[in-house]
Design a protein around this nucleic acid. Structure first.
Length: 524
DNA sequence: CACTACATTTTGATTCACCT
DNA sequence: AGGTGAATCAAAATGTAGTG
């Protein structure tokens, strides 16, 4: 692009004024008519040289200094010697760097040589033809095609990943958005569009989501075809070492974070791991998603049928299988998951109700292990998930135990199976925000109970199970927003406390927590 | 200086290593 | 065994650092 721009400039890089060009051509023409000095050089060059000399007031006799072909050749050689072997500077910059004192030879001064070069270069074409571009393009293709690193050149037909719903929205809106806000930087545009996307009405958002899903399905089919045609393109199974590479790739690992949250769990003395081992059979863990359910089923099936195949391979198979799963199959899987999840909820609720009242909170705590993930991972931007909020939690965790307590407090309220009347009511601190319902289902239940005060919980449950996908999404969104608001309010609440209040709050919560944990220990 | 590689922002889908 | 979480990758334009 810069070369095209340069081609519009004068040889010295400065932009020629149209008036100036006109003036020069008139001058050249008039001189051409009266002079015949082109003994061995291009007429135009000599004439131009003449005007230059006149303008620079260097004496009229220099105009007629002769340049034989041999001397001109020698000049070119001298200039060539001044250029480094690996010269990659643009013409104008290189020209400015040439030391004409080193070029000068025989009776020609540095100025003579410089001027002569200016004249010669006038006769050189400064633009490139299409065929020249094509020639270079072929050379580039040859070069790039041989590079094993260049995937695009190696597999030009490889389908590109489909855009996510947000990406579709971003691409669609970016142009008009930047036009309306030309001062915004690209990063700001992305941030604002991200916010706008999140605030998008559900119906509009669904359009993008659906389209994205369609694209995703097409991509899967295309990839399947591509891998059939190019089995060599199938990525080789990665070794354990490759994880290090992945970590050191584009996104730097946050050093202030523990390697993973599970180690954090064990480090802080929490017995989450132990609890899983001692109190629950693995098979009792309900699937957390449709994918999880499918994976569970596939892996179990494989377990029976192909016990000799390594787990990693089976997981890979599962991933591959997922790649080629049809939309219908996926829907079925999703429905299956919803049904399983609802069954689990119902079973869990009746189990909780069957427990003695003092055991219920502990049982709730055992199963609601993932508050951080649920609240933070799902409802905050990725960056916040990874750093700010997590850091905030861990920072406070280390020094100020008051945050642990709300966390646990929230845990007990965040369980999908929680019935309001099962939660021991804890007094709220002054200004402390009220906890939101723990699940989308609870929001639905609350609404349901408000509208049908006579109806019992089981009818709400069966209604929830039959709820359309759209309505479930609606309640999920409401739930998300409520949780997000609570997080923000809670953070603001903590910030608003002075040291004494914080101690007081911390102490209150610690006492509550001690009660809870002693119960918990007993239970274990 | 020219050029290249990478980081920056956003969301969501996908993949897969790792840990319990 | 399998749940979890981190990495990656799609798009865009621009800035920056490193290399030659």
């Amino acid at each position: 692009m810069s070369r095209n721009q340069n081609s519009k400039k004068g040889r010295n890089g400065e932009r020629k004024e149209p008036l100036m060009e006109k003036t020069n051509s008139i001058v050249e023409k008039s001189i051409m008519d009266e002079e015949d000095v082109g003994a061995f050089m291009d007429e135009k060059v000599v004439i131009k040289n003449k005007t230059d000399v006149v303008i620079e007031n260097e004496g009229i006799k220099d105009i007629y200094k002769e340049w034989s072909v041999e001397n001109t050749k020698e000049l070119l050689q001298k200039i060539t010697e001044q250029i480094p072997k690996r010269d990659n500077l643009q013409y104008e910059f290189r020209l400015n760097l040439i030391d004409w004192d080193k070029v000068k030879f025989k009776e020609y001064s540095a100025n003579d040589c410089h001027k002569k070069w200016k004249d010669i270069s006038k006769g050189i074409r400064s633009y490139r033809l299409m065929k020249e571009y094509l020639h270079e393009a072929r050379a580039l293709l040859k070069k790039s095609g041989s590079s094993s690193n260049n995937k695009e050149w190696k597999f030009p037909t490889k389908p590109i990943k489909p855009l996510t719903s947000f990406m579709l929205y971003y691409v669609l809106k970016k142009k008009s958005f930047t036009k309306a806000n030309p001062t915004l930087k690209m990063i700001e545009v992305a941030t604002l569009l991200g916010k706008k996307y999140n605030d998008l009405p559900k119906t509009k958002k669904d359009k993008f989501i659906n389209f994205s899903k369609e694209m995703s399905e097409d991509y899967k089919i295309a990839m399947e075809k591509f891998y059939t045609a190019h089995p060599e393109a199938i990525p080789p199974k990665t070794s354990r070492n490759s994880s290090l590479k992945r970590k050191s790739a584009t996104t730097p690992v946050k050093e202030d974070l523990p390697p993973n949250s599970s180690s954090e769990d064990s480090e802080d003395g929490s017995d989450f791991g132990k609890r899983r081992k001692t109190t629950k059979k693995k098979s009792e863990n309900p699937p957390i998603s449709a994918y999880s359910l499918r994976k569970q089923s596939v892996l179990n099936k494989n377990n029976v049928e192909h016990q000799d195949i390594p787990l990693e391979d089976r997981m890979l198979d599962n991933s591959k299988q997922r790649m080629v799963t049809s939309a219908e199959d996926k829907m079925q899987c999703e429905e299956e998951f919803q049904s399983v999840e609802q069954n689990n909820k119902t079973e869990r609720a009746s189990y909780l109700q069957s427990l003695p009242e003092d055991k219920q909170p502990d049982e709730l705590k055992k199963t609601s292990s993932k508050i951080k993930v649920d609240v933070l991972a799902k409802n905050t931007p990725r960056k916040a998930r990874n750093s700010s909020v997590k850091n905030e939690y861990s920072k406070l965790k280390n020094g100020e135990n008051q945050v642990d307590k709300p966390e646990i407090k929230e845990k007990s309220n965040n369980n999908p199976e929680v019935k309001e009347d099962l939660i021991p009511v804890k007094k709220l601190f002054e200004g402390e925000p009220e906890k939101p319902p723990g699940t989308a289902y609870e929001i639905f239940l609350k609404n349901f109970q408000e509208q049908n005060p006579q109806a019992d919980v089981s009818s709400a449950e069966s209604l929830w199970a039959k709820l359309s996908e759209e309505k479930i999404k609606f309640y999920t969104k409401m739930h998300k927003e409520a949780k997000q608001k609570y997080l923000e309010d809670f953070e603001a609440f903590l910030n608003s406390l002075d040291e004494d209040q914080l101690k007081n709050y911390s102490c209150n919560k610690s006492c509550e927590d001690q009660d809870d944990s002693s119960d918990s220990e007993d239970d274990l």
